[in-house]
Amino acid sequence: MFERMRREEVCPTCQTLTALVAAFAKHRCLEQGEKLHCFVIRSGLTDPVLVASFLDFYAKCGEMESSAKLFEEFKGTGSCIWSAMMWGLIHHGHFLQVVHLFGRMLNSQLAINADMLQGLVISYMELGASRLGKSAHGYIIRNSHAAQYENSCYLETSIVKFYARCGNIHLARRCFNNIQQRDIVAWSSMIEAYAIHGNGKEALALFDQMLAEGVMPNGVTFLSLLSACSYSGLVTEARALFDCMVRKFGITPELGHYTCMVDILGRSGNLDEAAQVISAMNVKPDGRIWGALLASCKTHSNVELASFAARKLMELEPDNVGYHVVYSNVQAGSGDRWPEVEHIRRSMAVMDVQK
């Protein structure tokens, strides 16, 4: 469409170019994006949003040096430039640099918005910096009346996830209760928090409360619920949730949902049912789901099914030494399959893999 515009001599605007840069960033089209950047420089068309789009584009294409160069050149033109730089660093896992960048924001007297604060909270969460994260939360509380933060639900949800990841589920729930307008992301995040803390019953109770308040679940919500059931050993509840997801809400299961179900059923000893879930899937199984089945077979000493799962894994990931070791241990645990153990170990030596 952009090429047709050029041929028909229709002059693009900054908004047109921003949309085009976003498309290149999504598909990681580095060469086309660089050519467009040259066109923008020659034409003199620029505004802070377009510059921020290019900064985001270079970050997503792995060209952080180009992003940093753009940032230093245009950092005084708008807050969106700072936000784009922050999220580019987060995209590459440079969380400590995000913290330093936020310090520069404060020193530059820049107006801090919710997007920047969300990036800071996420960085503290990834760094496990509990005390600094609490300080950021205090800053947000102190300035919440003076500043009208846009998309504050996203910011508050990030705070919930921060406390959950840092081990304080009670503070996470308190912050969740304080969110005035909770969207599906907030509900799913709190359910996930209960899941990672092994509180399956609380996750299910929160799901019932969510439905009672008229919030419709999505695939992520059910993935968090199934994870909670897996951690807590709630087999019956997991079966009911999976059936509810498909029949009541019409959500098509994805690979993550199937993997959770295989893990839940396998842990509880329902290995045949777990294998049936894999065979009935509408998506292609990957190494994780076969690995979950293999681990359960080891736990419950099912050598035959373990051999089947191991063969599938070897086809998908022949260089993964962990699967070879688990398969070898399953054979050794049966007590009468030492030739098979020796064959597996010999094949590992041939492939030059080490435990």
Rank of each mutant, 00 (worst) to 15 (best):
W87K: 04
S130V: 15
G78Q: 01
S130Y: 13
H91R: 06
Q148N: 05
L110V: 15
A59T: 10
M125W: 01
S144D: 11
K75M: 14
K161A: 09
T77Y: 08
Y139K: 00
S158H: 03
K69G: 11
Q148M: 11
M125N: 05
G76H: 05
L110Q: 06
C80E: 07
L96R: 07
E150I: 12
A68P: 01
E63F: 10
G88W: 00
L132N: 08
T157M: 04
D56Q: 00
G128P: 02
H145D: 15
S83V: 15
K75W: 10
I112L: 12
H94V: 14
L55E: 04
S130R: 08
L70V: 11
C61K: 00
V98G: 02
C80D: 07
F95R: 01
N113I: 08
Q118D: 03
A114M: 06
G88A: 10
F95W: 08
S144C: 14
G76T: 13
A129N: 04
K134P: 02
Q148F: 12
Y124Q: 03
E156Y: 03
Q97L: 09
G88H: 01
A147I: 14
A136C: 11
A136I: 06
K161D: 09
Q148R: 03
V160F: 04
L120N: 02
H91S: 07
I122R: 01
W82S: 04
